[in-house]
Design a protein around this nucleic acid. Structure first.
Lengths: 169, 169
DNA sequence: ACAGATAGTTAGCGGCACAAACTATTTCAC
DNA sequence: GTGAAATAGTTTGTGCCGCTAACTATCTGT
């Protein structure tokens, strides 16, 4: 650091070589930045994900919601607790299943979501600043494929585990 | 869930739209998988990063190493502790600065690193399976640009903070 | 020689993902 | 129908990780 030119940059070439490292690192930065911005709305990442899916899917249960956002059931409890305390979501009675809740987005929830979307757009523009429009599209498409494949593998792994467990019984 | 076809996939469209969400999600999956595999070598992610940079940069101090890998000084202590306990790294005397350690990679460290590289290659191939060679190259190049920009912003932010602090004094 | 910066260490906090155990309810097999 | 197993939600606890603050030892600049 005392040398004139920095002998070692913040990101070392030996690590930049690995695509996995880059994704991991960028993901961490993106998460951190976006989390900071969401705080201005009283939201965290999980709450933001919940609002999005809830808006798209109408009233659903915590279980299904958790699957869609990638939150396990126990973490879902506190997430919904907070959202409900802030008046963004309501736990209503499920029409047919008395074990389950039907989660409803409130009007305020919808408003907060739309503010969140603006913040998300800003954060994304900032993150993808080095890319032009067509590159962003390419990147997005490739990431979609990777995410799908990774999720398929996860689901397949789950089913395999279940099958194995069943076989063991 | 009781419907025949799954009404909601593991990754919901409302979230897949956001590139930031995808990067974040994929980063988490990649991290998790790679971490599991590294366990077979008795390594975690931070230790793996340290070995890589140490191999590339020869003996350096913990401070400089931390900057390169993205580990803060306090976390670096336990990381090096573990590596030293496993005989992969040695804390030797720094030739000119008695406060600092000169970190050396041992022969065993080099061997473990090369096993780690094989594991990293496998994990990367698995993650990027949906992409062909030219797409992987494109993706990598774009991610490099994003990571550089993000890191530059971070450094600039640090310097701004320092300047502001200095001005305040 | 003294003030301030720097390298390393220790301790502790807060957030998060995950697992285990529990209650209430539903579903399925018989 | 009735009992067994599965499911929705909740509570509690555990371990990891990144971060901060405080401390000692040493270096640097004037």
């Amino acid at each position: 650091m005392s040398d004139g030119a920095p002998p070692i940059p913040g990101l070392h070439a030996a690590l930049m070589r690995h695509t996995g490292f880059l994704i991991n690192r960028i993901g961490a930065v993106a998460r951190k930045r976006f989390t900071e911005r969401l705080e201005t709305l009283g939201l965290n990442l999980r709450m933001w994900g919940v609002l999005n899916v809830l808006d798209a899917e109408g009233p659903i249960t915590q279980h299904v919601l958790g699957k869609s956002v990638g939150i396990d059931p126990s973490s879902m409890v506190s997430t919904i607790d907070e959202l409900e305390a802030n008046g963004l979501v309501e736990r209503r009675r499920h029409p047919t299943d008395r074990r389950a809740h039907a989660l409803h987005l409130t009007e305020q929830g919808r408003e907060t979501l739309s503010s969140g979307r603006r913040i998300a757009r800003e954060a994304q523009d900032e993150l993808l600043a080095p890319l032009d429009a067509s590159e962003r599209k390419q990147l997005h498409e490739m990431l979609c494929r990777i995410a799908r494949a990774a999720d398929d593998a996860r689901v397949a792994g789950d089913e395999l585990a279940e099958t194995t467990a069943a076989r063991a019984v």
